[in-house]
Amino acid sequence: MAKPNKKGPTRTVDIYCAKCKVQLFKYRKGGKGALIKCFKERITEDLTQVACTCPACGQTFARECLIRGAPALKMIGGKVTFK
């Protein structure tokens, strides 16, 4: 399978913890659908200290995995929101 485009989309969204509303990171998202996965190379600003864990409430919001051969974060349903 093809790897995701590194440059990717120019539209940036802010991703927040659904529980405590703290911003987790800024991400270059393509399309208008739900946020299911985040490719690590598209994250422009990471505000978490521990990977996949909210810095404020300690909730795990994603799992690290490989998607199409590229490292990504697979989001757990209902744990994050984006604007």
Rank of each mutant, 00 (worst) to 15 (best):
P71A: 12
P71C: 05
K6G: 04
C20N: 04
E64Q: 11
D14E: 15
F61L: 11
C52D: 14
M75F: 11
I67V: 11
G58Y: 10
K21R: 15
D14G: 13
Y16R: 12
M1E: 14
V80R: 00
L66E: 15
C54P: 03
C52T: 05
L24I: 01
G77D: 13
C65N: 06
V13P: 04
K26Y: 00
C38I: 11
E64N: 06
K74S: 15
T60H: 06
G30Q: 10
A62G: 01
P9L: 10
K6E: 12
L24D: 10
K29R: 15
I76H: 01
Q23T: 12
Y27T: 03
E45R: 12
A34S: 13
K83H: 11
T60S: 08
T48W: 02
A18C: 09
T81R: 15
L24H: 02
C54I: 04
R42V: 00
Q23C: 04
K74A: 15
T44H: 02
V22M: 03
K6R: 14
A56S: 15
G58W: 06
A70Y: 08
A34G: 05
Y27P: 03
E64V: 00
K79W: 07
K29T: 07
M1D: 14
A56Y: 00
K7I: 10
K21Q: 09
V22P: 00
K40F: 02
C38P: 07
P55F: 04
C54A: 05
L35I: 06
R42I: 00
P71D: 15
M1F: 10
C38D: 02
D14R: 13
A2Y: 09
L66V: 08
C17V: 08
P9A: 14
T60Q: 13
C54S: 09
C52R: 00
A56C: 10
G31P: 02
I43S: 05
A70P: 00
G77S: 14
Q23D: 03
G78V: 11
C52Q: 07
